[in-house]
Amino acid sequence: MDEQELIAALRSRDPAAVQELVETCGQRLLRSAFLLCGNETEAQDLVQDTFVQAFQSIGRFGGRSSVYTWLHAILLNLSRHYHRDRKRIVCDDELARRDVPLPEEGPLPLDAGLASSVLTEALGRLSVPHREVLILRFYEDMKIHEIASQLGISCGTVKSRLHYAIAEMQKLLPGELNLFGAHGTKETERR
């Protein structure tokens, strides 16, 4: 079923179309949601809410973007609500997280699992706008103008946020992980 047929089927609440959409986009959305919120349980809930909201507002989908891009825009919106609510309600968790030092001191084994968790941890310390551009650029592989369109900001703002986000990640990530090669963080150069 191509996208047009899929949309028509979704508008008539065809369960087979729902199943197809969840199967084709669910996994990718979940991973993006996890990078956005840093919590697997919340990411699952965000994806579920994304699908429910998408099906409820399927009449608004004008077909100007791909279905996945449209779903991802809903996910971004929901994740912003998640971050806002989290700021309002849960403070202890965030404070506790700040107290956990990133493994900046001492040598680290270059274990992929550890590198991933450190990367996710550092990502969680970025502001939401900086995190969004990094994920859209390097996980969703979007071009600058596509990110601008998705976030409703200018291309210049996207590039500026990317520069700041990359610089911030370079400061947060330990040099031993060698994520940025020979031209890595200032810490790496000093050592």
Binding site: R31, F34, A43, G113, L119
Partner: peptide, 12 residues
């Protein structure tokens, strides 16, 4: 970043 993000989320 691309490799790191893929690895961080690939088991989900």
């Amino acid at each position: 970043f691309s490799r790191g993000f893929q690895q961080a989320a690939q088991t989900l």
